[in-house]
Nucleic acid binder design. Sequence first.
DNA 1: AAACTACGCAACCGCTTAGTA
DNA 2: GTACTAAGCGGTTGCGTAGTT
Length: 232
Amino acid sequence: MVKKRENEGKKKKSVMAWKRGAWSAEEDRKLVEYVTAHGDKKWRTLAAKAGLDRCGKSCRLRWLNYLRPGIKRGNMSEEEEDLIIRLHNLLGNRWALIAGRLPGRTDNEIKNHWNTHLSKRSLTIQDLNAKMNQKLESSSGVASPSPALASDALPVLHLTADGSELNVGQPFDFTLNWNATVNEFEAEGYGFADHEELFRGGSSVDAHRHHLPLQLDELSEFIDCEEYYFLS
DNA sequence: AAACTACGCAACCGCTTAGTA
DNA sequence: GTACTAAGCGGTTGCGTAGTT
């Protein structure tokens, strides 16, 4: 922990002396050049060595949220928004954790997007699933869930792709995917108990064992990619 | 065209956590 | 165990700009 008052006298440069505000293209260039050549550690010294009149914290933030390779910028896709809503429902305001499931998106961007767009929508998980079912039905021509299968109010549809090793025509169970995700979160220190109230509320554990329709290529996207999709 | 308002997003701040001497 | 630094995180602020009057 930094003891601010104790350390104030030790600071070589007062906080007010660092340049603040928007970054110029020249500053970006210097930072990218230096980090590319020397790595992104020791931000305080890095800032000085890169010839930047910025505090290390500011440099780190600029790199992580804007300059580092792989940053995806621009409009969020519907799928990304859907995933954010589901993850937020599960994890709350743990933006870094949510960002970890959306490659290329930063916690800051997701937080901003949530606060400016998504939080204003009163979409529930049920709404999202209904929307997804509708979309998939219209694109695949699959019939609506049969009353028998949906007797327990589960949204059950069928895979429609052919030549599949996934038993075409059989409902695909997302339980495994869900369990893997839960295990991963637990490994990251988020215990199941942490989410018990959430599960009891809008998105129960059981709700994630439901079946949903997916074209095979769509399904493989969900399975193969680093991110996970919570379907209920 | 000017003034005002609302919105989006980059950046900052304060705090916590992890690592190290 | 203590003191300190570095890094990470979430909440908040404030500027730029698009939209409206």
